[in-house]
């Protein structure tokens, strides 16, 4: 079984993140960049599939040069190799353009199963798996909290607000996963050492036959026109208890529809 995991480098969601004033894009230069949290679950799921069914796991990343760090980290968990699409022309690419580039790379990789996180913590669009499925003409099994494989049949439990739906499709397919699906492993020292020696193929958009005009700023179909910082937390409301404090608290909670 050939498995490809999509890995994106994002600014650490635990630290302060900003958009750049000049072009409203994510400020990646000053951020602490890490593997998108949900992608670690995707890597873990890919490795579990490999352990159960054999085959090969390849990491696919589109991102600037420094994304290599995240690729090495991903490889230290156990995947066999990686493909890094890196090109200056990709700066400013929107989701649609990203899906175009990744679809071209995926065509070369010939995966039976493509696994990705259900969303990235920087954009949180959740659209990429669908776009890729459409471009590649494969099934999209999205929002999985469980994945089982029986021959060429994939079955997921799709997490919903009310519970879950069981969805099946034949390979090849793309599966996006939530953090409820597994517990990602920590890389071992051997994994860390081995990651340095694993093959990482770098590809430019020319290698993929994508025209510079289709991606980057020029090809973007969406633009962020302006952004405002989230307002600082306000002081809140103080309730002084003069015997009726409990009632006041319940009134407040009820006005906010908590109770």
């Amino acid at each position: 079984m050939k498995i490809v995991v999509l890995v994106k480098q994002v600014p650490d969601s635990g630290a302060e993140r900003n958009l750049r004033a000049e072009d409203n894009t994510v400020d990646r230069a000053s951020a602490n960049n890490v593997i998108n949290e949900m992608d670690e679950y995707a890597i873990e799921e890919a490795l579990r599939l490999q352990e159960a069914h054999g085959g090969e796991v390849t990491v696919l990343t589109m991102g600037p040069q420094r994304a290599t760090e995240s690729i090495r980290k991903a490889l230290s968990m156990g995947p066999d190799g990686a493909v890094h699409v890196v090109d200056d022309a990709l700066s400013g690419t929107d989701a649609l353009g990203t899906s175009k580039v990744l679809a071209k790379a995926l065509e070369r990789l010939n995966a039976d199963v493509i696994i990705c996180g259900a969303e990235s913590t920087d954009a949180r669009g959740q659209v990429l798996p669908h776009m890729l499925a459409e471009r590649l003409g494969v099934a999209a099994l999205t929002g999985a909290r469980k994945l089982t494989v029986d021959g060429s049949q994939l079955t997921i439990e799709r997490q919903t607000e009310e519970g879950y739906e069981v969805v099946t499709a034949a390979t090849p397919a793309i599966v996006s996963v939530w953090d409820t699906i597994n517990e990602p492993r920590y890389p071992s020292f051997k994994g860390i050492m081995a990651a340095k020696k694993k093959p990482v193929e770098t590809l430019s958009i020319a290698d993929l036959g994508v025209d510079a005009g289709e991606v980057g700023w020029a090809g973007a179909q969406t633009t962020v026109k302006e952004h405002t910082k989230r307002p600082p937390r306000s002081a809140g409301q103080k309730v002084t208890d003069s015997g009726e404090g409990g009632v006041a608290l319940v009134d407040y909670l009820s006005s906010e529809k908590f109770v």
Binding site: R185, Y186, P187, S188, F189, K190, G191, M193
Partner: peptide, 16 residues
Amino acid sequence: GMGLFGLPFSSEFGGM
């Protein structure tokens, strides 16, 4: 699972 018990040992015996 993280291989911590195998850190100072050779991979011949499953070490790191």
